[in-house]
């Protein structure tokens, strides 16, 4: 589903930082991959490169066989197939929950209003905030907002879902409700790439864990391997700090 080959990315603003140095990996359809690593390790940049919110400098990124670094690729088409959930939710504050979920369906997928509403209805029930359909995002709690954001991304019927630290901006008591939705998604066979600090989620849900540091993938393995006997010293150090 996703094939990443030798991807490099350097930021020059505000100062020169090598964010990614030769990242390669493959993510199969239906796989749930959790990316962990210390802050500044390039895990968010890696995720953002996957739907071209950041343009990688070199290498190849194939999403469902389409090279998104190829200039001829219509990136908007690819992005419609790749859902993304942000740390800060990024709901559209001038639109109601329902409008947040239906807008892109209508504009990008060209669905009829009725079809878009039906889809939104189904997804709001799924993420458990059906009663807030006509509320504005500012009137929702963080956990509710993030669940709307997940519903908004799912409304496009994506083949892959990217999660960029979806629970980091939440109050502790709201983390559970968001993780529950993500677990359900994983059980339903959604291909997911999740950048997170929630080790419990990684252990329980991930098929594979990727540990990144200083812009490179240091270690890859099953959660079992990872949390019981990690091989690299840096992984050990990181896990000892975080667990």
């Amino acid at each position: 589903m996703i094939e990443v080959t030798d991807v490099h990315k350097t930021f020059f603003v505000p100062h020169k930082v090598k964010a990614l140095v030769g990242v390669s990996t493959r993510i199969a359809a239906g796989e749930v991959v959790v990316v962990i690593g210390p802050s500044g390790s390039g895990k968010s940049t890696f995720l953002r490169c996957l739907n071209h919110l950041e343009a990688a400098d070199s290498g190849h990124i194939l999403i469902d066989g389409i090279d998104i670094l190829d200039r001829k690729t219509n990136i908007n088409k690819v992005r419609a197939e790749v859902g993304m959930v942000f740390q800060s939710f990024n709901l559209f504050p001038h639109k109601t929950v329902l409008e947040n979920i239906t807008l892109a369906q209508k504009v990008v997928r060209k669905r009829s209003t009725a079809a878009a509403l039906e889809k939104a209805d189904y997804l709001l029930k799924k993420v458990g905030i059906h009663d807030k359909a006509n509320a504005y995002p500012d009137n929702l709690s963080g956990g509710q907002q993030q669940r709307v954001a997940i519903a908004r991304a799912l409304a496009m019927d994506p083949k892959v879902m990217l999660f960029d630290e979806p629970t980091s901006a939440l109050d502790p008591e709201m983390i559970g409700e968001v993780l529950d939705v993500m677990k359900t998604l994983a059980q339903e066979g959604m291909t997911m790439v999740v950048v997170t600090h929630e080790m419990g989620f990684a252990r329980e849900v991930a098929d594979r864990v990727i540990f990144m540091d200083e812009g490179a993938i240091v270690e890859v393995g099953t959660p079992e391997h990872f949390f019981k006997n990690p091989t690299h010293d840096r992984t050990k150090l990181f896990l000892s700090q975080i667990l």
Partner: peptide, 30 residues
Amino acid sequence: IHRGQTEAARSLGMTGPQAMLYIILPQAMR
């Protein structure tokens, strides 16, 4: 308008002009 708004719109597959028209300009107008 926060950059995250454009990113959210673009991540849903909207084109630049669509993101501007539906997401950024209505918020900027206020």
